[in-house]
Amino acid sequence: MLHFIVASHGPLATALISSANMVFGELSNTTAICLTEEGGIEQFKQDFHHEITAIAPNVDGIVVLCDLECGTPYNVACTYAFNPDFNPKVEVVTGVNFPTLLMTADFVEEKDASSVATTLQQEALKTVVVAKPVELAQEDDF
């Protein structure tokens, strides 16, 4: 089983999960960790450590969905992903969006965090589109 952590600057992570719960229903094995101005970087590091170490013994892998590459949430998540002594495997995917978060529901029962992270990245690319008008064909059936 996998666990998904959404990590962001400000309340984005919490808002994404709240919106997903409204549209999809409760996303199991999904939590939010937010970097706040009030708490700052040190509080975020503590919150992240508390959450990931509480989750780790109960899952096969953890996928962290971050809002921005090289920001604090990403950098903190990568310290776990790149630590060979941390178990289970942690994968970090950046550029989280609403459709990608909804896709995670299909992967909770998976065991391979690396494979799921790659799939989410590939599928996320398909979720960014430019809207164009659709031409409707006129039917001649009167």
Rank of each mutant, 00 (worst) to 15 (best):
A81K: 06
S28G: 10
D47T: 01
K132I: 06
D47N: 15
F82Q: 01
A131E: 10
K89F: 04
L2D: 10
A20W: 02
T36N: 04
V129I: 15
N83I: 04
I62F: 11
S19G: 08
T53P: 02
F98V: 00
K111R: 08
E51H: 13
M103H: 13
K45N: 07
A77C: 00
L125M: 11
D60C: 00
P133T: 06
T118L: 15
E42M: 13
V64T: 14
T104K: 11
C66G: 13
F107G: 03
V59P: 01
T100K: 06
V130E: 13
F44G: 09
N29A: 10
H49Q: 14
E42Q: 15
N83Q: 01
L102S: 00
A105F: 04
T100P: 03
S115C: 12
A81Q: 00
E139H: 13
E37I: 13
I62G: 09
V63G: 07
E109Q: 06
V128G: 05
A137G: 02
P133D: 06
A113F: 07
Q46C: 07
N83P: 00
A131R: 09
A13V: 10
T100I: 11
T53Q: 03
A13E: 12
P11N: 08
T118Q: 15
N75S: 05
Q46W: 04
C78N: 08
E38I: 05
S115Q: 15
A124N: 15
C78H: 00
A7W: 10
Y74I: 01
Q122E: 15
H3G: 10
V134E: 14
H3F: 12
V92F: 05
E110T: 02
F48C: 01
P133Q: 10
V134A: 13
L125I: 08
V63D: 09
L101C: 01
I5N: 11
K45E: 14
A117V: 09
L136I: 14
H9C: 07
C34H: 02
A105H: 07
T36C: 00
H50E: 14
F142L: 12
S19H: 01
I62N: 11
F24N: 00
V64L: 11
V63A: 09
A117M: 11
S114Y: 14
T31C: 11
G39Q: 09
D112E: 07
G39Y: 07
M22L: 11
A15I: 01
L125W: 07
G25V: 05
A56R: 05
V130D: 12
